[in-house]
Amino acid sequence: MTLLSQIIQYAISGITSGSIYAIVGICWSTVFLISGVMNFATGEFVMLGGMLTWVFFDAGLGLAYAVILAITCTVLIAILLERIVIRPVRYPTEMTYMLITIASASVIKGIILITCGSETRTVKPFIEIEPINILGATLIPQAIVVTGVLVIVTLGLLWFFNYTLFGKALRASSINQIAASLIGVDVSKFRLFCFGLAGALGALAGIVITPIAFTGYNITPIAFTGYNIGLMAALKGLVVAIVGGWSIGGTVLAGLALGLVEGFVAGFISTGWKDALALSIMVLFLIFQTIDFSRRRRKIFP
């Protein structure tokens, strides 16, 4: 394998995993910006998407039905999460939200472990064509699906938030909740919607990575699915949401950048370094930003 084909190979897997990080990052920010909740169950949405697809697919449903059902179920679980454990908190602080969502994540994880087992799972690729050879590097078709989903999600959300009244009202609520309620926004409904949206996007991310198998050159970090992929997916998403400044565009760029850096580090140095690297980036970024949260929160709740 030549150096060039290696570089291309690592870039491909970097962009693939970066796309996932970006979508998960968007899940974090949709929830955080509107409700101030740091939702550590975000990663479980990703896990649920993949695992439930496998469950339904394994039960004999067609792939398309399995995907739709899995997304629906994850959305319902996300909505229930908001209704049952987030909303009843009487004197909410960031810390209580954080602990509650971490605990909820463990519960979801535990239930899936007991009901679905601890093995990693996979489903068949969505498009069944031969891997494409680019200058000696292999591009697996599912990588195209993953990147395509990111492109569609990003463009769709940008359109939604910038060109529809509902999307603009959502943005307005994230800027100033009191003013939003004064123009007629039912902010609690919006919170619920954002949890649902995060559930749908997270599930989608989890679904598209499920068919990715380890091939010879593939060093995509997230492949297959299993009960325990949630935490790492969540943390990577959080990293890119923070680095991307909680905006859609920034998060997508940060996600792709993190994916590429990880891809090259894993390829040229060692796969063992890539998670440590991602989290070190977050720590450094937070130190240099001297933690942006407080300023943002004041903007949301003036």
Partner: peptide
């Protein structure tokens, strides 16, 4: 028209 105008500043 609330105290401090409460506009959606970045919009």
């Amino acid at each position: 028209v609330p105290e401090g105008r409460q506009l959606f500043g970045t919009m």
